Amino acid sequence: MTQPLRFESADADGRGLEEVMEKVSHGDKNAFTILYDAVASTVFGIAVKVLRDPSQSEEVAQEVMIDLWRQAARYRPEQGSVRTWVATIAHRRAVDRVRSAQASANREQATAVRDQMRPFDEVAEEVETRLDSEQVRRCMRGLTELQREAVTLAYYRGLTYREVAATLRAPLATVKTRMRDGLIRLRDCMGVTT
């Protein structure tokens, strides 16, 4: 039977934790308990310092401890002490949580701004369209018969000048002149400025 590890035997600089980490990397649950007891308060303290929210800090601390269990084999003593490695993981995890929360807040704010934008008012658009249509009809009544027919055929039925002339049995030049004069009268009647 193996002797239980005792954290108390570790040196003040944490060299004993290196041995503990080695055992954790091989799946030793007792070694993980020792590691947990040695670093949990440090992990929580770092999380609180970054997040400033105890409940979120608890969640982050739990995530870090799970990471330590899963990633114990990645620890390299030549790159730093166990405490430094743990502190780095804790800090990164806490910063990731802050960034995630900020991104979520930004998305919510963008959604709120989008939702508060003035929606398209179909009723107002319909009223405006009807008023415009009524004004056009009124102005069209002020045209001569030939002007009204030429404009109607060209703009409402999509005929060319030649097709309008053929439909009205009028010379092409006459149709062009009447349409030009009719459009000028419509523009003036509608109050359109150029």
Score class of each variant (00 low, 15 high):
Ile46Trp: 13
Arg185Gln: 06
Leu131Asp: 12
Arg157Met: 04
Glu59Asn: 08
Asp121Trp: 10
Leu183Glu: 06
Thr194His: 08
Cys189Met: 10
Thr2Trp: 04
Gln71Tyr: 08
Arg93Ile: 06
Ala73Phe: 10
Ala110Trp: 07
Val123Arg: 06
Ser57Met: 05
Ile34Asn: 06
Val50Met: 03
Thr2Ser: 12
Gly158Gln: 05
Val39Glu: 01
Ala105Gly: 02
Ala101Cys: 00
Arg187Lys: 11
Thr33Gly: 15
Glu78Pro: 06
Ala47Ser: 12
Pro171Ser: 02
Gly45Gln: 05
Gln79Cys: 14
Ser41Tyr: 07
Thr111Asn: 03
Cys189Asp: 15
Leu143Tyr: 10
Lys23Glu: 11
Leu51Phe: 10
Ser9Ala: 15
Val192Thr: 11
Gly16Ser: 09
Asp115Met: 05
Ala165Ser: 08
Met140Thr: 05
Val151Ser: 08
Asn30Gln: 12
Ala38Phe: 05
Leu168Phe: 13
Gly14Trp: 13
Ala166Phe: 00
Arg180Gly: 05
Gly191Met: 08
Gln116Val: 06
Gly16Glu: 06
Gln102Ser: 11
Leu143Phe: 07
Ala103Arg: 08
Met140Asp: 00
Met1Leu: 09
Glu78Asp: 11
Met179Glu: 05
Asp28Asn: 12
Asp96Ala: 08
Thr152Gln: 12
Gly27Tyr: 00
Ser25Val: 02
Arg107Ala: 15
Val43Thr: 07
Gly14Lys: 11
Ala31Tyr: 00
Thr167Val: 10
Trp69His: 00
Val175Ala: 07
Val50Ala: 05
Ala150Thr: 06
Arg138Lys: 02
Thr167Tyr: 01
Glu134Ser: 08
Arg97Gln: 08
Thr42Asn: 13
Leu183Gly: 07
Gly158Phe: 14
Asp121Asn: 14
Val48Arg: 14
Ala38Ile: 07
Ile46Leu: 11
Gly16Phe: 03
Gly27Pro: 01
Ala166Glu: 14
Trp85Glu: 06
Ser133Glu: 09
Ala12Glu: 13
Thr111Lys: 07
Arg52His: 14
Asp181Thr: 07
Ala170Met: 03
Ala10Ser: 10
Ala73Tyr: 02
Ile34Tyr: 04
Arg148Ile: 02
Thr160Pro: 00
Glu149Ile: 04
Glu163Trp: 04
Thr2Asp: 02
Gln62Cys: 12
Leu35Met: 06
Phe32Gln: 08
Asp121Lys: 07
Leu183Asp: 03
Arg185Ala: 09
Leu183Pro: 01
Asn30Asp: 10
Arg162Phe: 05
Val82His: 03
Ile34Gly: 01
Leu146Thr: 15
Asp67Ala: 14
Val64Gln: 07
Ser81Lys: 12
Lys49His: 07
Ala90Gly: 06
Val175Met: 09
Asp28Trp: 03
Leu159Cys: 00
Ala87Gln: 15
Arg92Tyr: 01
Lys49Cys: 01
Trp85Pro: 01
Leu51Val: 12
Val98Asn: 09
Val50Ser: 11
Asp96Ile: 03
Val136Ser: 03
Asp67Gly: 15
Leu172Asp: 13
Thr144Leu: 10
Tyr156Val: 11
Gly80Phe: 04
Ala47Tyr: 07
Arg187Leu: 02
Arg52Ala: 10
Leu143Lys: 12
